[in-house]
């Protein structure tokens, strides 16, 4: 099998191998902080930064990291970037820092990030690792915004804080509460799987 092209490396994580909707990784923040679109974007950007920075360093220093301590070293690198994000958000966007709360620190244990280091960045060139991290990170942001949009529109009647339906709208409070995360993810997975199966069935019928 030939190596994927650079654009394939970049774009596969965005949708075809989306970390949340396809691989079901990083579900903790995807369920927890997506009660508004802004929180989703902030968490997505923070994760993108940590993933890109970690992949860059792991790929650069992969020859110097002994196999026996590789996971410890990856976690150390990831934790460093998470602390940088934590301090930066606390300094320049204190409102978002408070809204995301303990979940910023929990980026350290996001299995999507460690997974990309172990499965990809530690084996590939710096350029490829960077493309993979950017694609996966943007895929994560897209998935979080998909969840956040549904939850904010139904749960608060707004999008990015802008009211959509006026005063007569009765918000579905459950959508901004923790069960709303499971409901939104469940319905997205249901819809996406239905769409994928229909496309495959039509392709098969067309081929026959």
């Amino acid at each position: 099998m030939s190596d994927p092209t650079r654009s394939e490396t970049l774009f596969r994580g965005v949708w075809r191998e989306n970390p949340v909707m396809i691989h079901m990784l990083g579900l903790c923040p995807a369920l927890a902080v997506t009660n508004t679109v802004m929180n989703s974007i902030a968490m997505g950007m923070a994760t993108l930064f940590v993933l890109t920075g970690s992949s860059l360093l792991v790929s650069t220093f992969k020859r110097f990291i002994p196999h026996e301590v590789r996971i410890t070293t990856y976690i150390l690198i990831i934790a460093t970037f998470v602390t940088i994000v934590d301090m930066s958000l606390a300094a320049w966007t204190p409102g978002l820092h408070k809204a995301l709360g303990a979940y910023i620190a929990l980026i350290v244990v996001n299995c999507m990030i460690l997974g990309r280091q172990e499965a990809y960045a530690s084996k590939q060139s710096v350029g490829r690792a960077l493309l993979d991290a950017l694609g996966t990170g943007f895929g994560f942001i897209i998935a979080l915004v998909m969840m956040g949009a549904v939850r904010e529109i139904l749960g608060s009647g707004s999008f990015l804080g802008v009211s959509l339906f006026g005063d007569n709208f009765e918000p579905w409070l459950v959508m901004v509460l923790p069960p709303g995360g499971f409901l939104a993810l469940g319905f997205w997975l249901l819809g996406l799987n239905w769409w994928t199966q229909r496309r495959e069935r039509r392709a098969a019928e067309g081929a026959a």
């Binding site: 110097f64 990291i65 002994p66 301590v69 410890t72 070293t73 150390l76 690198i77 934790a79 460093t80 602390t83 940088i84 301090m87 930066s88």
Partner: peptide
């Protein structure tokens, strides 16, 4: 390896 990685991480965090 872990010592160097830890020292570099600490240095970076001091700057931040």
């Amino acid at each position: 390896t872990l010592g160097i990685a830890g020292a570099l991480a600490g240095l970076l965090l001091v700057f931040v």
